[in-house]
Design a protein around this nucleic acid. Structure first.
Lengths: 204, 204
DNA sequence: AGCAAAAAGTAAGTGCCGCTTACACTGGAG
DNA sequence: CTCCAGTGTAAGCGGCACTTACTTTTTGCT
């Protein structure tokens, strides 16, 4: 029995794997108190360390947030890929499923979703995050390319994929913004996604 | 010659119309330093008053931001209505012009645009803001209803209008997020908007 | 094994911010 | 003229981001 309450998986260095614990704490805080109502100090408190400890792992607050965003984008990308793989390649259902994964992510963790986009805490200059964003778009592009029987770098493919992405992106934000409003069930999402895919790509 | 540097238009009460000056200062700050890099204290400094003065006009920071958002939504609504009025009612061009006004607003003042949406500083519980948001959507609904020859409260009209709004909303965010990227000219916007309108509503 | 250095933590301090309290001025109504 | 509501200030509280100086633990070199 270790006497420290942390030290989950890592037998690592000194106390526990603080870096991972901080990221987890931030995720939780952002989800419960919103992206604004979070502080490095509170995250440190939750991890059971002093308020200066986080700065051994992250240069400053934006860097910590960027780490959370990076991890979130990995999960988003994985979810989108899973959605695509669950249906016949190039089918409308596959494309709608990619969008559904996106919307599900936003509904499931709206705070983190807002953090990934929304904020301008400097992650538009982070090459790694930009690459991950393009990688997510790539899932859509790939599916559209298959459906249209064109190369993924074809201009029309990029155009259609962007239009689908913009709709899904906007729909995700509107969904988490008006949580109290009428429209918002999962099945509504699905019919929207099928309809927009059909409208943009033509029937199948 | 008044010795105080403020007191622009109002000979009003005591010093100047501080309320309006604060809103203007916040708009400027949000635009130049981003929605996060703004403070009530700095806004007060710009208006030439003490850091406690704003609290005579606004209960707290969120209320000040909500005032900025409210004013911004008025301008957004006016711009959308202007866009609609500039073309034949029910034309694809009218509908695209509404979307164009939306995107133009986002491009023109991305900081304020992010403030209006994005943030959760409590304005999802503000009845006035909710009403103004619905009023903006109403412009789209009205135009779609005219085009489809249906009543504005018809379910299909609401559905199509929502789909168009979601696209425009997402496109606006993506546009201001990747300011460095390739796609982003005004004419690109216009062709996108015409294409999505045609895809959703059918050719005309 | 032994030890120097690096990694990972703490305590305390600085300056800014949000917000409150107590007080001062100003202008208009009675 | 006086009082008072409206509008401003000064000063202070607690919290946060971040730094500096210091301690402790892990690691890697010989």
């Amino acid at each position: 029995m270790s006497k420290s309450p942390q030290a989950q998986t890592r037998p690592g260095y000194h106390h526990g794997d603080l870096r991972a614990q901080l990221i987890a704490a931030v995720r939780d805080l952002v989800e419960t108190h919103g992206p604004e109502g979070f502080s490095v100090a509170e995250a440190a408190r939750r991890a059971g360390v002093s308020s200066a400890a986080p700065y051994k792992h992250f240069k400053d607050r934006p860097e910590l947030l960027r780490a959370v965003v990076s991890e979130a984008m990995d999960r988003l990308h994985a979810a989108m890929a899973r959605g695509a793989a669950a249906h016949a390649p190039g089918s409308l259902e596959a494309i709608a499923a990619i969008g559904m994964a996106y919307v599900d992510f936003a509904r499931g963790e709206p705070g983190v979703f807002r953090l990934v986009f929304g904020l301008t805490e400097g992650h538009e200059e982070d090459a790694e995050l930009i690459e991950k964003g393009e990688s997510c778009l790539g899932v859509v592009v790939q599916a559209v390319a298959v459906r249209m029987g064109l190369a993924p770098d074809h201009a029309t493919v990029a155009r259609k994929a962007y239009m689908l992405w913009a709709f899904v992106h906007g729909h995700s934000f509107l969904t988490i913004d008006m949580k109290n409003k009428d429209m918002g069930t999962d099945t509504d999402d699905w019919t929207y996604l099928l309809e927009i895919s059909r409208a943009v790509l033509g029937p199948g």
